[in-house]
Simulated scan of single mutants.
Amino acid sequence: MVGPNSPVLLVVVFLVGVALVIWCVEIFIEAVAQSAVSLGVSGFFLAVVLAGIDLENAVLGVTAAVAELPGLAIGTVFGESLFVLTVAVGLAGLVVPFRMDVPRIYLVLLVLAPVPAFALSLGGEIDFLGGAALVGLFLPVLAFVYWHERRTETTYLLSDEVQDVIGLEAEAGAKAVADGDRTRRERKMNLDFDLDLDEFVPSLEERSGRFALVVAVLAVVGMTIGSGLTVYSAEGIFVALGISGLAFGATVLSFIASLEELALTVEPVRQQRPELAVGNVVGSTVFYMTANVGLIAFLQPIATDGDVLTVHWPFFAICLLLVTATLVRGRVTRLSGIVLIGCYVAYWFVNYL
């Protein structure tokens, strides 16, 4: 008999959620690139805002806090943060090793964003006031990123495709744009790793930038719904195994909930748009360690002693510094990917010692 909690139905819902996430990621990438061309806003900034703000993780954390399960809530924050830094970046390096000359200001932002939450954690608890302060910190950080890009008028943070289109338009107008599109198609055909999903993604080339931006927002909503379906079904499966609390949130629940983060980091690299991947990593880390932790603490004080200080913060700090050092070098290699994924495996192991 197939009921609401039937294992068969839960597996079907899980697969539907995964498929929805992957499809929406493809649409998101196409929409971000088109929006950046038409609106004159960098793909990096749009990735930070639209991909970095992880609505699904926020909903999980807030729900757990309302249910007076702050340990589960903070576990998802650390688990997803570490997943993005290790598995997502590591797998991207394994699939398609890539080079990037990341502006130092964004690397500084990546390292400094968790400092306020860590400082508050040293007191043994993040309370209502600390949570409010962390939430209030998030918007000024986004405003700074936007201001910095508008002030410097950098082209680095635009995707390769956007740079090509802008340059070609300046030289030869519509004909050059067509040439750029042909170059892009040829580049995609030469990729070693192809998910063959492009044919299912609607083209936005003839649409306005505002329309493409709306599509990007809808794609984020779709990713959130798909991830929510995945988490719901996975939670039903794994709760039956008796896994709960901080370790459950930091490992099983956050792993399942992070599927969209994996796609948002690996897929842009595969499509030779690594700045979108880095934008997702920076945006996610900033969001997790400011607004996400803040919302949880705002609703329910978070105890930060015990494993939070002895396991989760040390692992997070080590992985954050490894990723930052890799980006400083400007190369994410397969060896880097193996090391980062190994750190995540060790994190799981330590959680269940």
Rank of each mutant, 00 (worst) to 15 (best):
P4T: 14
N5K: 12
L9H: 03
V11K: 00
G17H: 08
V18Y: 03
C24L: 00
E26M: 13
F28T: 05
V32S: 01
A33L: 09
Q34K: 12
Q34M: 10
V41W: 09
V41G: 03
F45E: 02
L46C: 01
L46F: 00
A47Y: 00
V48G: 08
V49R: 04
A51C: 14
A58F: 13
G61N: 11
V66E: 04
V66C: 01
L69Q: 15
P70C: 08
A73R: 12
G75I: 11
T76W: 04
G79L: 07
F83G: 13
V84G: 05
T86L: 13
G90V: 09
L94C: 09
R99S: 13
R99D: 10
R99P: 01
R104K: 13
R104W: 06
L109E: 12
L109C: 09
L110D: 04
V111L: 15
A113T: 08
L120R: 04
S121F: 03
S121L: 03
G123H: 13
I126C: 08
I126L: 01
I126M: 06
D127G: 15
F128C: 02
G130P: 00
G130E: 05
L134K: 12
L134S: 11
V141E: 05
V141C: 08
E149V: 07
T152I: 10
E161V: 07
V162N: 07
G167V: 12
L168R: 12
E169V: 14
E171G: 04
G173A: 11
G173R: 05
A178M: 06
A178G: 10
D181H: 14
D181M: 12
K188T: 08
D192N: 12
F193P: 01
D196Y: 11
V201R: 13
L204A: 03
E205F: 06
R207P: 01
S208V: 09
V215K: 01
A219T: 10
G226D: 08
S227C: 08
G228A: 05
V231H: 00
Y232P: 01
G242H: 06
F248M: 04
L253I: 12
S254Q: 06
S254D: 06
F255P: 02
F255E: 03
I256V: 15
L259K: 01
L259Y: 14
E260P: 07
A263Q: 00
L264W: 01
T265Q: 03
T265L: 03
V269A: 12
R270V: 14
R273H: 14
P274I: 03
G279D: 07
S284C: 14
V286G: 02
Y288V: 13
N292C: 14
V293H: 04
G294V: 10
A297I: 07
F298A: 14
D305C: 02
L309K: 01
T310G: 03
W313C: 02
F315S: 01
F316T: 13
F316M: 14
L320Q: 10
L321E: 03
A325Y: 06
V328D: 02
G330R: 04
T333G: 07
G337Q: 00
C343I: 05
C343L: 11
W348L: 15
V350N: 06
Y352E: 05
